[in-house]
Each structure stands twice: as C-alpha cells, then as structure tokens.
Design a protein around this nucleic acid. Structure first.
Lengths: 193, 193
DNA sequence: AAGAAAATATTTACACTGGAAATATTCTAT
DNA sequence: ATAGAATATTTCCAGTGTAAATATTTTCTT
C-alpha cells in the first residue's frame, strides 16, 4: 500500500480537505472549525493536527486547492488553438464565475493572516494561476509606453480589474441589475488591436 | 448632558470603536475579540452588548467608520477647483494608500458575513464612498459604446481596477519591486481625452 | 520473523471566545 | 421623589484551538 493511503483512517488528509470545503461552502468561513471538520469525517478533534499542524495549515490546504480550481475554471472552456482574444474572454468569465460559485473560498484565498503564505504548495498554485492571467494579458493594446515593464503592466492591470470586479460582486457592492447587465467583459475598456 | 455622552462610562460606544480599531491595527481581525476590546476600555466583557448587540454589530461599526475614512483619504489632497484628472489621480492613490495603511480594516469592509449588510449607517457610508469614485469616473474615454450605461460602466471599471489593485497589493500577490515601480496610475490604460 | 522507530489517532486538559440570563447601578422623565 | 429606561456587572454555558500524554498501527531495520 502507498504510504498516503492506508493508515488508520485511510487518506484522512484528503477527506478532511473535502469535508472542509463542504462546510466552507455551506456555513462560510465563520462556520468552519477543526472540530466540525473532524466530526464530519468521524475522527477525534485533534486528528487533523497530524496532517495540517493547526488551523492555519488546514486553511492553507484549502486555499491551495482553491487556486488550482480557479486556474482550471479559467481554462475550462478553452479549446485547442483558440485565438488569444477568445481565451482571454473565457478566462475572465471563469475567474468571476469561480468567485461567484465559491465566494467564501475565494475570500480565503486572498485573506490576510489566515494561511501560511510561505507554503510551497500554495505558492506553486498561486504562480500557476497567475500564469494563466499572464498568458491572456499578452498583446493587450493599453496605450502604455513600450518599455521593459510593458508585459508586467498588462498582467497587473488585467488581474486587478478582474479581481476587483469579482470581489465587489460577491461583497455586494454592485447593484444586482447592473451586475447582470455589465459583465467583466463589458466594463473593460474596449481594446482594439 | 446629551443622552449619548454621560452614562456610567461616558460615551462607551465611541471608546469601544476606537479601542477596536487599535486592536485591529495591531493584531489583525483574528486578534480582535469583544473581551479584549472591553478590557482595553476597562468595562466588563458584556458591556459592549448594550451598544452593538453582538460581535457583528461592532464589526459593522468598524466597517462603517472605515468607509468614512476611505472617502476622506480619497479627497485628502484635493484642492478647490482642481481639474478632474488631478482629482482622479489623487483619489486612486488615496484608495490604495488607505488599503495599505489599514489592511485589516480594509479587508473587513469587503468581507462576507462579518458585518450587518443592512445597517443604515454602513450603507450610507458605502454610498458616500462610492460617490467619490463616481465623480472621478466621469469623462473617462474608455472606448465604450455611448449608451445609457456609459457612466455606470465607467464607475464599475474604475472601482474594480483600483480595488483589485489594492487588494492584490495587501494580499501579497504582487512582487514588491513591481508594486513600487507600477502604481495604480501606471497600470491603468493611458486615457487620452 | 522480531523488535525498534515512526506515523497516526485518542484522551484529557486548559485558556479563550461569544453570548444568554439574572441582577445591580445610574440616569432621565414625570 | 419615584417610576422606568438605559447602562453595566456577575454568573454561567457551549464551543473553539491547541498542547501534552498516551495508545494504536504501520513501516523500517536487522
């Protein structure tokens, strides 16, 4: 048997992550506790310590999984060799859809002080997620000076715009009817290449 | 004496808000508790209940104060009759500065499920804050179709961009050197009117 | 195969938290 | 002055994260 799959419970770590994501989805971050999570899986309330160390460790694993899901959602409807403008639109819509579908997880992923920001797996997933955005930020005609910061500038712009839009949506800061009428694609400046 | 200013403690409500903001600044949202807050002011741990009802009530008051501070920070360096482009730059920088200076408060202001989103005072301050952004969003040449949603579109765009930039900054998602080199003004598409 | 060592899980205990309920104190109004 | 409202305290409870000691199972070494 593989080391990770056959101890007392049998892959408790993965089961705890799954249960936590469910609780997070149902009851929000305030409703998530190590004890509820352990209960849901059927182990003692200190069992998670072996796999995550503490609460921050569990939340780090959740955030890490979230970034992987977000990256997937952005590429969800991509088809092979689709032109970059199409990929860009799909990725932006995927980013917003993820936030709307998993608002509490999304909030956790960008929260301060709740996760271990130096966790290698988390950092790796963050970088991979940003890679998708860096890709779709290429060739944006933003009217910037053409210097060695051009690509960085485009990446920061596109991430800022879509992230702000998503967060303001789920925070309830936009009116509902305006949110429906004006998607992320509608509010971005129309970019003609 | 005014009803609000002379009971047992003497304006306990305001003192609790002030103490809470201090704790929030020092120890973050996780470090803030009703009991610590009450301790700091020198009252019993259930005294805050009379003024805020519960924890959500206190956090609502903090968020409300935060929006007022944010609106002030955006207009901080405005001078009378300064042209709109100048006001726009100052307001955007003020928005980001507020987030950087009060990251935990900023996070609370846009958090889900922590505040009472139907609180009249909070809503009022949110609307007032958004009013500043609506002002600076006027006359932005974004290349959008000129329809009856033009101004709404510009407002949503400018708020999304600056909010996303601010949040990604304090969440540590931008590299530090790039953050210094490329401010919110640098990453926005260059808008020539 | 046998024992040592490591990994995993439980039990117990503790300090801290938000909140409910009953009580006490102070202010306000009549 | 006294009634009633507002404010504050005391006491209590369920729930939380986490540390420490212990128990169980798996894996490694020989």
């Amino acid at each position: 048997m593989l080391a990770e799959k056959s101890y007392h419970h049998g892959n408790l770590k993965q089961a705890l992550v799954k249960a936590s994501l469910d609780i997070l989805h149902k009851d929000g971050l305030a409703g998530l506790s190590l004890r509820k999570c352990a209960d849901a899986v059927g182990v003692s309330h200190t069992a998670p310590k072996n796999h995550f160390g503490n609460m921050a460790g569990l939340l780090t694993a959740l955030a890490s999984a979230g970034y992987a899901m977000l990256a997937d959602d952005m590429r969800k409807d991509w088809i092979a060799d689709s032109p970059r403008p199409d990929r860009r639109d799909l990725a932006l819509q995927g980013y917003v859809s993820f936030a709307v579908d998993h608002p509490d997880l999304f909030e956790l992923m960008f929260a301060r002080g709740r996760t271990k920001s130096d966790d290698p797996e988390l950092m790796s997933n963050v970088v991979a997620c940003f890679g998708v955005l860096a890709d779709i930020a290429q060739d944006l005609p933003l009217g910037h000076p053409n210097d060695d910061l051009t690509s960085t500038r485009a990446q920061m712009f596109i991430w800022s715009a879509v992230h702000g839009y998503a967060q303001l949506c789920i925070a309830g800061r936009f009116k509902k009817d305006e949110m429906k009428r004006l998607t992320i694609l509608d509010i971005l400046p129309h970019l003609k290449s």
